[in-house]
Design a binder for these strands. Structure first.
Length: 421
RNA sequence: GCGGUUGUGGUGAAGUUGGUUAACACACUGGAUUGUGGCUCCAGCACUCGUGGGUUCGAGUCCCAUCAAUCGCCCCA
């Protein structure tokens, strides 16, 4: 019999926990600076929260963990935005808080994909949503937050790619132009693109299969179909990024995988070759109709999500120094039948705010010293049956040879005096 | 969903055209030193080679299946 984690899932073992605590710390600090509020939504929702009509994305159509429990169909969340907007509408937060509502979330997401580097079936995302305000400067600020977090993790080899999808009128005009353009070339396109042609012709543009086709190269450009309002909006986003000193690249083919985006879309990618096929660090965009979709008022929002596994792995590649668990202040060695006294002394240290561990099982002196070394204990305290009888103990600093025999109640002051020396 | 590569102890790994007792190193445990660590020396540590079948007198080595990891495609964070 063989037990193991399901495919695409993994255990985060204690030895890797410093990295997670570090990235979580950075995220909480940064979101505090920007004054975002954490929101926690369920790990599963009614399937219809995610399975939106007319959505062409693979994530929604073939990668969801969906199950039936008699009273309905439920789905493990594949992304964070839908749940946040659903909660925003369900609790009518638009009526009780100042707009934009600024939310962040952090937790597991689930997608049934073939795992590879930077892609698991259960993975962790941090994301933010600004709901109920439409401002190009807010778009820029949102991107800036993501960039700040990436930078704080010591990741510098990044590129901000940005594009606009325009408003409904612009996109509709472009959509028609694209359909007209591709109609005579349909038989040159792949099967997926035939589906895209019907559901979301914009996505034909970032199809990787047919990238050499002439009909793709000379396809009409969205930028030619933007109306005045959409163009002005995008220009202001770019101007705000310039003002913040955030370099970017306009990528006209960037259309994003979720169908709900309007206006600004962006993707921040790693430029390191080792990051492989999963180079996207964070990505997101503006959505004009999501809030009303779930029953709320007409409100626009913008957000992004970061894959934390990718963030950590890139931080490692760039040599980021993750904080480490502090070494032990003291290790208490016991010889003979003195475990109760060892425990008492260890507790005494802890209650004084010192990080301490004591040996509570019968082991040789040598192995106990080895434990103290391994745990990088600053002080080593040795007590045997004689010391317990006399109310004394032996203490030495790991780095020094000198050992002192002191009264048990002098322990704390001895340590402080020795450290101050 | 498709294609490539890989799978030997706690870890890194040797393992010749299939041939008897699965190298070596690190780590770990014990001892030399029965109450003083970091060095050294000695000893111990894989009834078995991801799992299940098959071929063979004989399989870690060959074949099939399966699981997993990894890389690429698709997709995405």
């Amino acid at each position: 019999m063989n037990y193991q984690t399901p495919r695409g899932t993994y255990d985060i073992l204690p030895e890797d926990m410093d990295k997670w605590h570090d990235v979580e710390r950075v995220i909480r600090e940064e979101t505090q600076l920007y004054r975002y509020n954490e929101i926690r939504t369920p790990y599963f929702e009614s399937t219809n929260v995610f399975a939106r009509e007319n959505d062409s994305s693979d994530m929604v159509n073939k990668e969801m963990y969906t199950f039936n429990m008699g009273d309905g169909s439920y789905t493990l969340r594949p992304e964070g935005t839908a749940g946040v907007i659903r909660a925003f509408d369900q609790h009518k937060l638009y009526g009780s808080m100042e707009m934009p509502g600024r939310f962040y979330y952090m937790g597991a997401m689930f997608r049934h994909e073939r795992p590879q580097k930077g892609r698991q079936r259960q993975f962790t995302q941090f994301g933010v949503e600004n709901i109920g305000a439409k401002s190009p400067e807010l778009d820029a600020e949102t991107i800036a937050l993501g960039c700040d977090i990436v930078k704080k993790m010591g990741i510098s080899s990044v590129k901000v790619c940005i594009n606009t999808l325009g408003d409904d009128a612009s996109r509709e005009a472009y959509r028609e132009a694209l359909k007209k353009h591709f109609a005579p070339h349909l038989d040159e396109l792949c099967g997926d693109c035939h589906r895209r042609y019907e559901q979301n012709p914009l996505r034909i543009l970032d199809c990787k299969v047919d990238h050499d086709l002439d009909c793709l190269k000379n396809a009409p450009k969205l930028s030619d179909y933007l109306n005045e309002e959409s163009r002005t909006y995008f220009d202001r986003v770019l101007k705000a990024l310039d003002a913040l000193g955030i370099p970017y690249e306009i990528d006209e083919r960037l259309v994003r995988g979720l169908d709900y985006y309007t206006h600004t879309v962006f993707e921040v990618v790693s430029t390191r070759p080792e990051s492989g096929a999963q180079a996207t660090i964070f990505a997101g965009g503006r959505y004009d109709h999501f809030v009303e979709y779930y029953g709320g008022p007409e409100m626009s929002g913008i957000g992004f999500a970061i894959g934390l596994e990718r963030l950590i792995s890139l931080a490692e590649e760039e040599g980021h120094n993750f904080g480490e668990t502090a070494p032990l202040d003291a290790y208490v060695i016991g010889l003979g039948d003195v475990s109760d006294s060892v425990l008492q002394v260890t507790q005494q240290l802890r209650h004084e705010g010192l990080c301490a561990e004591g040996n509570l099982v019968p082991r040789s002196l040598k192995s106990q010293f080895k434990s103290a070394d391994r745990k990088k204990a600053d002080f080593i305290i040795i007590m045997g049956e004689d010391e317990v009888k006399n109310g004394t103990l032996n203490i030495k600093k790991s780095s020094e040879k000198e050992q002192k025999t002191i009264k048990q109640d002098e322990l704390i002051e001895t340590i402080h005096a020795w450290e101050g020396k």
